[in-house]
Amino acid sequence: MKVTLSIQRFDPEKDKKPYRKEYEIDVDPTFRILDCLDKVKWDIDGGLTYRRSCSHGICGSDAVMINGKNMLACQVLVQDFKKKYIKIDPLPSLPVIKDLVVDMDGFFAKYEVVKPYLIAKTQPPVKERYQSQEDRALIDEAVNCILCGACSASCPSLWSNDAYLGPAAMLKAYRFVFDSRDDAQAERLDVVDTPDGLWRCHTIFNCVEVCPKEINITWHLSQLKKKCAMREL
């Protein structure tokens, strides 16, 4: 079958500003959008640029905007779209390096702000630290984050204020605050209990709608908010 991809192109070595280009290609209905991009790159224009690696939704390289929604190009098939005219853009609100490749340095800088690592202040035992199944369940969804950036790039609060840490960093904070083995709850809450932290989340739920791992990010942020509110009582 034939599909038309309309892709935002931008080559910093040639172009003053981004433009759109259409490619009509022959594909199987079961092609991933990533396969379609490959087809353009390999058969038509070797310069088409995008990130990718695992090709099945676990590495988080290929988050892009498809028909206005952030998703992983490898996690959606041609047959999932009714119209065979598919618009592909880089993740919104991030600086574009080239075509669909965006600069994620800022995204990862915010990730680092929340101290994204276990801080245990007691000597570890000889064997494992115990954790009940109930406690482990608290971080069940949060540990699935693949840092693809789809959520943060969909957040209107972040679009309007770049200082906001954003849903991905907040979710990472949750992952450690609610890990029964972590001893740095207060330090971590100090980082997120700020005007540019948690309280910029206005529960718009865009992040939840786009998360390719189906994590209910807003729910996790609300749990963090509760934790912050409780400690002020």
Binding site: L118, A120, P124, E128, R129, Y130, Q131, S132, R136, I139
Partner: peptide, 14 residues
């Protein structure tokens, strides 16, 4: 595990 890997757990937390 000490570094923070969130392993699934048995009923008694191992």
């Amino acid at each position: 595990e000490h570094l923070g890997v969130p392993f699934s757990r048995t009923k008694d937390g191992k």
